[in-house]
């Protein structure tokens, strides 16, 4: 009962916050609601026994990405932004498509078939701690993708610099 209550709160808040994020006219407000949203999602992760993921959710998303967003938002002319409509003219079409897609995705849920159960039971993860278990996997079985991820980040770093810098004029 307590679990359901907990989940209900999180789910409700997450949906409300998501709606706020996409509907606010002022981008700064959107970013702020998004920050709150990410904290709630992190809380949900804790609820699902994924404390490392919750941690990086807060650190990477809330700490790094959202700050980046905030920087960029501050470039905008907020006064003009607030005075304008936030949606494009064709928003009903978007709403319609999205709604239908939601209905169809939800209707699939009934045909879910459970796969085989793995060895990382709640007790097992708890005894080993989640971070250690994830780390072990990451540095053994998923070492290669892990290295690739580092390359992706490198590309992103270089790409961001190249794209964002002004053209040097001699």
């Amino acid at each position: 009962m307590l679990q359901q209550l907990f989940f209900g709160y999180y789910a409700f808040t997450i949906i409300i916050l998501s709606l706020l994020v996409v509907t606010r006219r002022n981008p700064v407000h959107s970013v702020m609601w998004m920050l709150l949203l990410f904290f709630h999602i992190a809380g949900l992760y804790l609820f699902l026994n994924a404390e490392f993921i919750a941690a990086i959710q807060v650190i990477v998303y809330a700490g790094a990405i959202l700050v980046l967003f905030l920087f960029v938002v501050l470039l905008l002319n907020l006064k003009e932004e607030i005075s304008l409509k936030q949606f494009v003219g064709s928003w009903p079409a978007g709403l319609f498509v999205t709604g239908l897609l939601f209905v169809s995705v939800v209707s699939v849920l009934g045909s879910y078939i459970q796969g085989p159960i793995g060895k990382y039971s709640i007790a097992a993860v708890r005894s080993e701690t989640h971070t250690k278990a994830l780390g072990k996997l990451l540095y053994t079985e998923y070492l290669f993708p892990f290295e690739i991820a580092s390359l992706i980040l490198l590309v992103a770093v270089i790409g961001a610099i190249v794209l964002a810098k002004r053209k040097l004029r001699s």
Binding site: I14, V21, V22, P27, V31, F69, L84, Q86, V105
Partner: peptide
């Protein structure tokens, strides 16, 4: 949440919000 994100992407004018 996915559909709300998608709705935002399809309807918002501001490219930063679309990105969010």
């Amino acid at each position: 949440v996915f559909m709300i994100g998608m709705f935002g992407f399809l309807t918002r004018k501001n490219v930063i919000i679309m990105f969010m």
